[in-house]
């Protein structure tokens, strides 16, 4: 039992990351109606450019800012593609576009970053926050959890309490209608893409030193992230947060159980299956189809 608790706590690092990325995915979906497979890849691009800036001699924190800027631009660039050519497309087509883009981005990223040769990833927030069940809980993992929590609250408040948030929701549901309301659709959509780009970049910068820091592995964090978002049915921020934390912690726990630990990578899949089977009991029809 103690071993289980220990490994559960050890899974917290991953949990925070999954939760944060999951909440970002929900944010993107609710505001621009895109299931974004490139989410983590955008953040990864920003993170690797930070490394690039550091190797050019830029000090750490300015490099962080520059890296986030690159991530923001990368997000906006994908957003530009989506708004330019796919603003009227169905959700399925949009998802197909991001899935295809992921293939290209990973290939490009691996090329530019030189495959698996390790980069020196600076630990932005070194040290451990506290010790729990014999595990040092690092500042970084606490920070990702807190950041995910803050982002959840902010996003919820933004969407439900502010005028811009309402506009954006109108936009995601009916782009044409929003246009008629006089909302500057494209600018707002681009803004959303940019903001999520910035957030995922920052999130990945924090967690990159604790992950296998190559472009592909980091980009494929999108799988548990989308699993978390699915727990929240791409609507609820708190549920997505809970989903991400659960996947991470369960993944950590499973490493303590012999016989399962080898297959712990398949946990997101089972979480998705369980959630879907539970939540989709009734027939649902796609809106407007």
């Amino acid at each position: 039992m103690n071993a289980l608790l220990t490994s559960a706590v050890a899974g917290l690092t991953a949990a925070g990351a999954y939760a944060l990325l999951g909440v970002c995915a929900v944010f993107t979906f609710r505001l621009v109606a895109v299931v974004n497979f490139t989410g983590a890849a955008i953040g990864t691009a920003g993170t690797f450019s930070m490394i690039g800036f550091i190797s050019l001699g830029v000090p750490l924190w300015p490099a962080v800012v520059l890296g986030i800027l690159v991530g923001t631009l990368a997000g906006a660039l994908i957003g530009l593609v989506m708004t330019q050519w796919f603003s009227e497309a169905t959700a399925t087509t949009k998802a197909a576009v991001t899935a295809a883009l992921l293939v290209g981005i990973v290939a490009l990223g691996l090329r530019l970053t030189g495959g698996q040769s390790p980069k020196e990833f600076p630990t932005l927030f070194p040290g451990s926050a506290f010790r729990l069940a014999g595990v040092e809980v690092t500042v970084a993992s606490v920070l990702t959890v807190v950041l995910a929590l803050v982002f959840t609250l902010l996003a919820d408040a933004f969407l439900n309490r502010t005028r811009t948030g309402l506009h954006l929701r109108a936009l995601s549901e009916r782009p044409m209608a929003a246009e008629l309301l006089g909302v500057r659709v494209r600018i707002l959509a681009l803004l959303v893409w940019a903001v999520t780009g910035a957030f995922t970049t920052f999130a990945l910068m924090i967690i990159a030193p604790q992950r296998s820091p190559d472009f592909m592995s980091l980009s494929l964090l999108v799988v548990p992230a989308l699993a978390a978002a699915l727990v929240g049915a791409f609507r609820s921020f708190p549920l997505a947060l809970a989903g991400g934390l659960t996947i991470g912690i369960v993944e950590g726990m499973s490493s303590a159980i012999d016989g399962i630990s080898q297959y712990r990578g398949i946990l997101p899949f089972f979480v998705i299956l369980a959630v879907l089977l539970w939540s989709q009991r009734g027939a649902r029809w796609d809106e407007a189809r």
Partner: peptide, 22 residues
């Protein structure tokens, strides 16, 4: 089955990832 197509994309990707592991 009862899902919007979009969720299917995620299910299949997660399956591919899981299958990789196995």
């Amino acid at each position: 089955l009862r899902l919007r197509g979009i969720n299917l994309a995620i299910v299949t990707l997660a399956f591919a990832a899981a299958f990789d592991v196995i």
